[in-house]
C-alpha cells in the first residue's frame, strides 16, 4: 500500500511541476489555462488519492474527496471565466489551429496596447 501511495503522491507532484512549467513556458494565455488545469485536476486528484489511505477516519476521507471536487468545480469555472474574458477583450493571440474569425464576439474591443504581440 505504501508504495502505491508514494507512487500516487509523486505523480501528483509531477503534474503540479508540469502545470507550473506550462504556466511559465507557454507563450499565450489559452495554452497557460490548459497547463494549469492539468495541475488542478490531475495533480490534486492524484495527491488526494495518495493521501486517502492515510486518512484517520471515513469523514476525513470524505472531506478530502470533497476538497478535490470543490477544486475541480472552481477551477473549471475559473478557467471558463478567464478564457471568456481574454477572448472578449482580445488580450491574447489565438492558439495554433484556431480560426481568427471566431474571435470577434460581435463587438469592437480594441487591441490592448500592453500586449506585446497583439491579436492578429
Amino acid at each position: 500500500m505504501i508504495y502505491v501511495q508514494i507512487l500516487l503522491v509523486s505523480l501528483g507532484c509531477l503534474f503540479f511541476i508540469v502545470g507550473t512549467l506550462g504556466l511559465l513556458r507557454f507563450d499565450d494565455a489559452y495554452s497557460r489555462i490548459h497547463a494549469i488545469t492539468k495541475a488542478d485536476n490531475l495533480g490534486l486528484g492524484l495527491l488526494v488519492l495518495g493521501i486517502l489511505p492515510s486518512a484517520l477516519s471515513v469523514p476525513q476521507g470524505l472531506k478530502l474527496i470533497l476538497i478535490w471536487v470543490l477544486v475541480l468545480a472552481a477551477s473549471a469555472t475559473a478557467s471558463y471565466l478567464i478564457a471568456h474574458y481574454i477572448k472578449q477583450h482580445q488580450l491574447s493571440k489565438l492558439p495554433h489551429g484556431a480560426r481568427p474569425d471566431t474571435t470577434a464576439d460581435g463587438q469592437d474591443a480594441e487591441p490592448d496596447p500592453t500586449n506585446e504581440r497583439g491579436p492578429q
Partner: peptide, 15 residues
C-alpha cells in the same frame, strides 16, 4: 504580460 496571466498564476497558487 497582461492582468489575465497574473490572475491565472494566482489561480494555480490557490490549488
Amino acid at each position: 504580460p497582461n492582468p489575465a496571466d497574473r490572475m491565472l498564476a494566482a489561480q494555480l497558487f490557490g490549488t
